[in-house]
Design a binder for these strands. Structure first.
Lengths: 345, 345
DNA sequence: GTGAAAGCGCTAACAA
DNA sequence: TTGTTAGCGCTTTCAC
């Protein structure tokens, strides 16, 4: 890399950071003692502690993370890896809650969170970052089965997944909801209302969670002796939900109940259903998934399946922290889902 | 910190990362040569380059970031600091685009992005992170005037702000939009349609951007020889927009054009206008601001002023990268706005 | 073009 | 309780 720092441009002059050595000199103790104070070692003379504290405050000393990390072989940072398109990530409040949960747990620790959005990773920059010791571990959400680079990373640092990372390679830590049961709960609601022509609008078929919801939905219908209607891919987006609803109406006009596998898709699908002359829930009952704000922003308040997303994030962080602390944790954690009853079904 | 790595738990055994030294031994060259190859130095014998490349591939070598950072005094990472509540951050598509823009620019560099959401920062963890040399620079969005900790950081590493960071302390890099021109463009549209009784629903009067939009609106009307209608505070919220529209209809029933300073307010105002017996745009033309999804969720598709949020993010990243490269850049960058034409005006 | 050697700022043994 | 001594893995002069 060319042109590093230290050139002459007035505006770019930066204060040189004080080092541990300067603090030691200022406080009249050895560098080791300063290090002990900084790291809260119990066995330091209170008098030295005080003089070191003073020196630190006066100099505005902040330990250099690179040096600390190099010497101690850990970085006190964890990454949140999102192998997802960035606008998709931001559009989905489910992620927001997860991040809030992770963040909340981390605030009680001395780890920092690095969010890495890596939909496509030209040159494997994210991979090299994670393998280069920049973080001690990572939490992965919104994982697609095609994201193979994570396997390599998993042997270098502990990885905790939000949602099952696919069929193979389940020997890693996973926090998940019972998606199958979530789909089942939704379908059961529709069946109990008396719907008999029940379709579903699904998430992307390369996402495990989406597949499982569809399975649960199908199982319940079959158990109830009904013929499952079409399962149409809505891509977890609002637009995708709208397009899927349009297709649904053409392909299966007799539909009287639909499980839409995310609230966002439901908020896109509902207007299409309404425009198609269907009353909700009288003509078509709709059950969503997530209990996101989108559920309330729908034309008809949406009955939906709640995922405890914030608690999931918290749990993921908790597991990772425990792992980094040298403790073991069970591989699989399943969080409970819950049906939130509103007007749409 | 207790219990570092290397304990006995089977599952936690990690592959030891290969070092530069191991690559050097494997390739039969010195460490310095490996370093040169890794960093793309021009003056290395092609033969050595090849053997080093092979050794790197065979060993799966990835440079240790901490060591590199310590030795070279820069980290090749930049932070995106968001002094904002995490759910608010995720709820706003404006941020999403900014992040997408920053990310896009960074993908063309060898810098990585660390997103730090630090609404409250107990123990100053984020501050210590930024001051500890973990990143070479930072981009700050959604800055509040109360966030003082950034001032200290600003003299340690370069900071680029998205949106003017307040009245004082403008001696930093800022990327902003021309809000005055945004209001002007909206008003001009209304004038050109032939509206003669033009009002505005504004954002909170203590926000610089809101005031500037109103100024632009007023200027254009006066230039056109029209008497500006009322400017009613709508608080940037949907409810506020609805209340303001009600007031507008009472206070100025002859209104035939209105500039609503955010799409969200417009989506609250439109139903009130419609309920008041006005057709849009025949009786009252409406122009919004933001080009957010709310613009399409309005009863009548909203003509609105687009802020180039993605381009802003891109520009912020570009400036920061340039700064880190040792070049100087002008402090203030104003991005152009654009009118998105739909049906409401 | 290449190697040897000296650190970067910190932590972690080991003595004292 | 404290100081001394080695490094952590890399970059970077400086000779060759």
């Amino acid at each position: 890399m060319p042109g590093i720092e230290g050139d002459g441009a007035m505006s770019l002059v930066r204060h040189a950071a004080p080092t541990l050595e300067m603090v030691a000199a200022r406080a009249g103790v050895s560098r080791a003692t300063v290090s002990r104070v900084v790291n809260g070692s119990p066995k330091v003379n209170p008098a030295s502690v005080e003089s070191v504290r003073d020196a630190i405050a006066e100099l505005g000393y902040v330990p250099n993370r690179a040096a600390r990390s190099l010497a101690s072989a850990h970085s006190h940072a964890i990454a949140l890896v999102v192998p997802e398109d960035i606008t998709r990530f931001f559009g989905d409040v489910f992620f927001a809650s997860i991040v809030a949960g992770i963040n909340g747990r981390l605030e009680q620790s001395d780890y920092v969170l690095n969010l890495m959005v890596a939909s496509q990773d030209p040159g494997g920059k994210t991979e090299r970052y994670l393998l280069g010791g920049a973080v001690d571990g990572a939490v992965v959400v919104s994982h697609h089965t095609s994201d193979h680079f994570l396997e390599r990373i998993g042997d270098a640092i502990p990885l905790v997944f939000g949602g099952r990372p696919g069929l193979e390679r389940i020997d890693t830590w996973v926090v998940d909801v019972d998606n199958e049961e979530g789909g089942a709960v939704a379908a059961r609601r529709l069946v109990e209302r008396g719907c008999t022509h029940i379709a579903t609008i699904t998430g992307p078929t390369d996402m495990q969670s989406a597949l499982e919801r569809t399975h649960g939905w199908r199982r319940v219908l079959e158990e109830a002796g009904l013929v499952p209607g079409p399962a149409i891919d809505g891509d977890f987006s609002m637009i995708g939900g709208a397009l899927a609803a349009r297709e649904l109406l053409e392909q299966y006009p007799e539909v009287d109940g639909v499980f839409v596998a995310s609230d966002l898709m439901a908020s896109g699908a509902m207007p299409v259903l309404l425009d198609g002359g269907r009353r909700i829930p009288q003509d078509v009952a709709v059950v969503g998934y997530d209990d996101s704000p989108a559920a309330l922003a729908c034309p008809v308040p949406l009955t939906t399946v709640l995922q405890p997303s914030e608690a999931m994030g918290r749990e993921m962080a908790d597991i990772l922290l425990d792992l980094l602390d040298g403790n073991d944790r069970q591989r699989s954690t399943i969080m409970p889902i819950e049906l939130i009853e509103r007007e749409s079904a």
